[in-house]
Design a protein around this nucleic acid. Structure first.
Lengths: 333, 333
DNA sequence: CTGAAAGCGCTAACAC
DNA sequence: GTGTTAGCGCTTTCAG
């Protein structure tokens, strides 16, 4: 069906190996012979079968990326950055979304491994990664991004400063006079959510009040109810800290124009165009992706040093919503 | 290094083929034997080498997806939908972003083809796809999404109703009393931009005024200048039609709170939370992705009917900005 | 500079 | 039920 090297070889009247040399730009082929081979390649429309090459060489020039959901802007940005580095290194990217399901994460990782990806970048959904043990022993480098692996796995990790970022957000609100600061975030089973809760709690100290904390899976759709419950308290919150981009948006929608001080974790498009502009603790998903990919390729180049645990700083961006004072709260904007 | 079927076979005291049978759930293996093989697989930590399998079977169970940029919400949504269908069919997705560069699009497509992807979904950046000819002849199905292929290529295509959507947007603004409607969009070399300009022009008829059209590459950063120029006219626009999500956002930012009627092509997160809410002609990127993937798998299943050319309807979503009357324009919001 | 032979790990086709 | 053989298309090794 498709022409193979053998076909090209007989078309050009040379041996298989000579074609291989030409295709791979190996030295030691007479220019005239090379030209004849190239002409045959062109004429037959030959293109090297990478599957065969991979099998023989034992390298696939493929990196596997498991994220939570490409449609989420954070992971989309991360993916794009990973892709950039991967392409720069002459590799291709196999990617998949776990949808926050540990089973799917594992399935994806195992499928990628069966394809013998040269390396793996994983944003884990689960917290048991013992299934990766044999792959690591086989020498495949793995980098965890955004969230660390489950206990007992010593691999490179690139995280954001979740605790510090949360503390920064809460401190900012406190500086602006708030004492009743609510936290709305994801299920604490998720690492980043738990870390941000921790930072929130640490910074709040004695002001912490469990009634001002709502952590629900994003699908539950009850953030509005939780908010209503909090606002009905004798001492309602005057400020909100939302645990990630999705919650910030959901919360803004649930507020329906009600003016409350708010700082969100994660930056998002149009945060500056809302009224007031939404103050956020911004992560840089591209940076995280790039760093994770670079660590991976360093390993691929043979770096066998101890595992790296990077924590990327985050940045408070003030746009108005986080600078409202407690007495400005409550009014309908 | 890694255990192979041969290793498993000798560990279990059976022949290679028996291991293959067990691994592939082929019938005709005695339960006891199968159990022994499974035990050996478990003990050695064996996992089938898919590269070898691909080479032998001639199918890679891989689909290639070329888009413009994963970090763009439209393409992120499309990717996610494609991924869903691909996984459902037991395949994996190789994806890459062309960054709107025809050269990169071609490179990606050719690399994917060298890996012998079973099928290809392409959002083209260029308009010459003759390089795909040989691949199509080799039997690889290709589906174009969002934009059609260059001349002379008869393949399945899934597009949105760009002309109709643009007409709908302009008509809506006209119904609300506007006669001076500007169009801000992408370089007309891009299919969707050209189609939307066409719809805009058709619907506007005699009211068309070239001075109210600005089509620039998104990188140029001069949308604000163009807008200023238009507003400085004797008969400035009272309404804007923006050609895609990115332009809508850039335009809103450039307007800096100035109240002008506006309808944008493409829906976007938070469009409802801005003041006024942004009216849009909404496409459904997930739908487009799903449909494209389904058409592809139908081909893969052997459908050899004439090429399909699907046009997905779009939907006008009114949120306020598109319902402002001409005399409400000009004020600072 | 060029070529022949072996074999990567698997599956297909056919024995037994 | 099970095993043997050939070979997918390429790279590696070694021989000329």
């Amino acid at each position: 069906m498709r022409p193979t090297m053998k076909d090209v070889a007989s078309a050009a009247g040379v041996a298989l190996k000579t074609v291989s040399r030409v295709v791979n730009d190996e030295p030691g082929v007479h220019p005239t012979t090379a030209e004849r081979v190239r002409e045959a390649i062109e004429r037959l429309g030959y293109s090297r079968n990478e599957s065969a090459r991979m099998l023989r060489r034992g390298r696939t020039a493929t990196i596997g990326l498991v994220i939570e959901d490409v449609a989420d802007p954070f992971y989309a940005g991360l993916s794009r950055a990973v892709e950039g580095v991967v392409i720069e290194h002459g590799c291709l990217l196999l990617s998949g979304s776990s949808g926050e399901e540990p089973g799917r994460e594992r399935e994806l990782v195992e499928t990628f491994c069966a394809r013998r990806v040269d390396g793996l970048i994983v944003v884990p959904a689960g917290d048991d990664h013992t299934y990766l043990r044999s792959e690591l022993e086989a020498g495949t480098p793995v980098v965890f991004a955004d969230r660390p692996p489950g206990a007992g796995l010593d691999v490179d990790t690139v995280l954001a400063d979740n605790v510090g970022g949360a503390r920064q957000a809460v401190r900012h609100l406190m500086v602006h006079g708030h004492r009743r600061i609510a936290f709305l975030g994801d299920d604490p089973a998720i690492f980043t959510a738990a870390q941000r809760l921790r930072g929130y709690r640490e910074e709040l100290g004695g002001l912490f009040d469990a009634r001002l904390v709502s952590m629900r899976p994003p699908s539950s759709g009850v953030i509005g109810d939780d908010l209503a419950r909090m606002f009905a308290l004798d001492d309602p919150p005057t400020a909100l800290f939302t645990g990630n981009g999705r919650y910030t948006v959901t919360t803004l929608r649930a507020l329906g124009g009600r003016r409350v001080a708010l700082v969100g974790f994660d930056d998002f498009e149009l945060a500056d165009l809302l009224d007031p502009g939404v103050s956020v603790v911004a992560q840089d998903p591209s940076w995280m992706g790039r760093v994770a990919a670079e660590v991976l390729f360093r390993r691929l180049r043979g770096d066998v040093g101890p595992s790296e645990h990077l924590e990327l700083p985050v940045r408070l961006v003030t746009r108005g919503s986080g600078e409202l004072s407690p007495d400005q709260a409550g009014a309908r904007g």
